[in-house]
Design a protein around this nucleic acid. Structure first.
Lengths: 162, 162
DNA sequence: GAATGGGTACTCGGATATAACTTGTCCGAGTCTCTTAGG
DNA sequence: CCTAAGAGACTCGGACAAGTTATATCCGAGTACCCATTC
């Protein structure tokens, strides 16, 4: 169970977009250059985010991506669900209904106990991610990211806009 | 992020082994027949469990798998880690150290804030799974599994031993 | 000088190849059991 | 009748293919901007 690499990319992209002045946007190509990742594949992932409204797109020159709503309204879970799909990690194929001991289907009212246990763990995971927002990420960054890096990022953004 | 199908298989296998009379064992082939899954592939997964001590193997005729320790000492997390690998789901490639804003490596003391947020969610997931044991699964089964199915399973076990 | 029309260049979005991993299969080494021969 | 040796068959364990998903890429549709032309 490894998470897609694209998840890391879009999380960083969203964090960067969250620090952008209101109204400004960055194109997929610019984001790809900033993080040094293949831009076409990154665009495919960002596209998924715009579909669900986490990001908002604008076409044409000086277009690009910006946050679809306030940073404190965007939970990490929304981003991950958009990129990875909303399905559960653990899939129950009703194994208990196969083999020599199975009885008729309608006898199984509650979901499989194993599946419920696994899903309870997933719920805990999703709960944490739903409570963590982009705003939290930015707040952490404001404290921990080296000032030098923040300054360089600002310079880079200026040069892109120039 | 989808979990391997083999996880479901081995969880059901462990649950079945947990209800076996002490000292008895079931071979991979028998378990595969019981759940109607490819036995060679199942054996590959069970093998991983015996490596870490969750299961104990015995060779030769009337050999097979049995629990390596008491059912209440086997957490679901142990099983999943053995089958899926112990690595984290979210992998941080230190994206912040790439691109035009990166500064020298030694300036990054704490792990990336995004990674820490993701790992906090994983920890919640692992916490639930580490607190759920095979004994809990058996307990749930004793209440919820139809009596008819339990009876059939007993009959099947007898016929296999015969 | 202002407005308008068109061209251009940039954007996103979806369809298309490649790589990695999960899934599935096979065969070989080892071991317990059963049989059988001998004492 | 008991013991022991050997053959046999069953077990697990690791090496070997096929299908599916993630990764990476390309090209087309659409849009805003810029410039030239016209009024």
């Amino acid at each position: 169970m490894r998470m897609s690499r694209g998840v890391e990319w879009v999380l960083h992209c969203c964090a960067l977009l969250a620090e952008l002045p209101p109204g400004e946007s960055l194109s997929a190509a610019q984001l790809a250059r900033f993080f040094d990742v293949p831009h076409a594949y990154l665009a495919k992932k960002l596209q998924a985010l715009s579909t669900v409204g986490v990001l908002r797109t604008s076409s044409g020159p000086s277009g690009g991506y910006q946050l679809g709503r306030d940073a404190n309204e965007i939970a990490l879970l929304s981003i991950i669900d958009a990129v990875e799909g909303v399905g559960r990690c653990f899939i129950c194929t009703e194994l208990r209904q196969q083999g020599p001991s199975a009885v008729s289907t309608h006898r199984y009212t509650t979901p499989c106990g194993i599946a419920r246990s696994m899903w309870r763990a997933e719920d805990a995971w999703r709960s944490v991610l739903s409570k963590t927002t982009l705003k939290d990420i930015v707040r952490i960054g404001n404290v921990e990211v080296p000032a030098e890096q923040r300054r360089r990022a600002q310079i880079w953004l200026r040069s892109e806009k120039g």
